[in-house]
Design a protein around this nucleic acid. Structure first.
Length: 268
DNA sequence: AAAGGCTGCAACCGCTCCATA
DNA sequence: TTATGGAGCGGTTGCAGCCTT
């Protein structure tokens, strides 16, 4: 793709081109923040021209929305936010901006990055496509219940409500019912397309799924090889907002659940 | 300690949608 | 109705910092 300007802080390079690219400097940030505070965050091409920044309007807008905006929330993705991302993505797919509306302070870019770096990594470990039915079912029936369990486990009664009641008006803190779009129905506390639900009624997949879900949620499933007390996790990736499970945990557990014939244990 | 690999994030690009003239 | 410009979106990539060997 494009090559960022070398030594982008260098005045010489700034003079080489009318448009600056690459990382923003503190001075540029200050100019943009100051200009937007006075003139508002609209007409980005005008802002880009009038502010004296040698940036495109698009670049200014992106910098403002993803970084400089006062209500932007930085830091690790919480368990609740992970849950919401999985849930809303199951409803809407890669509609990052729409998903972001239900995660106050989070940007579409941040959510997109989270999905690509964390969730897609899990799919890669499973050697399946992130859009495959297998992966979607894994999310719905394994990871999300697991997240709910962990959210409820970490919550004190005084400070937390049941995760099922989370969310949401766009721009508001997580609260209220999950929005349900036409064509979706609630199934096992998850919203799934009605067509998908009916499709699962044949060939007894529900039995498999309930086995998986019951195994995780109810703690009656088998531990990964070499692991005892699979339901107990260290804090790696817990509140810090990394993976739902560690890579190894998810890989071996799901491999065992869905592809037992291909599992060859070397877990140690 | 050094080198190479990996990961996460910031930022860009191309495309589409929408409003306006 | 069409042309144009701005805004927004999703996909992609470069790079800094961390990790592993």
């Amino acid at each position: 793709m494009e090559d960022y300007e070398r030594n982008s802080n260098s005045p010489t390079h700034e003079e080489d081109s009318d448009v600056r690219k690459g990382p923003w400097t503190e001075d540029e940030d200050a100019i943009l923040v100051n200009f937007v505070s006075i003139h508002g965050d609209a007409r980005w091409n005008h802002i880009a021209r009038s502010s004296g920044l040698k940036r495109t309007g698009k670049s200014c807008r992106l910098r403002w929305l993803n970084y400089l905006r006062p209500d932007v929330r930085r830091g690790n993705i919480t368990l609740e936010e992970q849950f919401m991302i999985l849930k809303l993505h199951s409803l809407w797919g890669n509609r990052w901006s729409k998903i972001a509306q239900y995660l106050p302070g989070r940007t579409d870019n941040e959510i997109k990055n989270y999905w690509r770096t964390r969730v897609q990594k899990q799919a890669k470990h499973l050697r399946c496509d992130v859009n495959s039915n297998l992966f979607k079912e894994t999310m719905r029936n394994v990871w999300m219940p697991r997240l709910v369990e962990r959210i409820n486990a970490q919550s004190s009664p005084a400070t937390c409500e049941p995760v099922e009641s989370m969310i949401t008006d766009p721009g508001q803190p997580i609260k209220g019912p999950i929005p349900v779009e036409p064509g979706f129905v609630q199934f096992n506390q998850q919203f799934v397309p009605a067509s998908e639900l009916s499709a699962t009624s044949s060939n007894s997949p529900a039995e498999t799924l309930s086995d998986v879900q019951g195994g995780v949620v109810n703690g009656s499933g088998s531990d990964p090889p070499g692991q005892t007390g699979f339901g107990e996790f260290n804090d790696w990736g817990c509140v810090g907002g990394d993976n739902i499970w560690t890579d190894e945990e998810s890989f071996w557990f799901l491999q065992d659940q869905f592809c037992p014939e291909t599992t060859s244990y070397s877990y140690n």
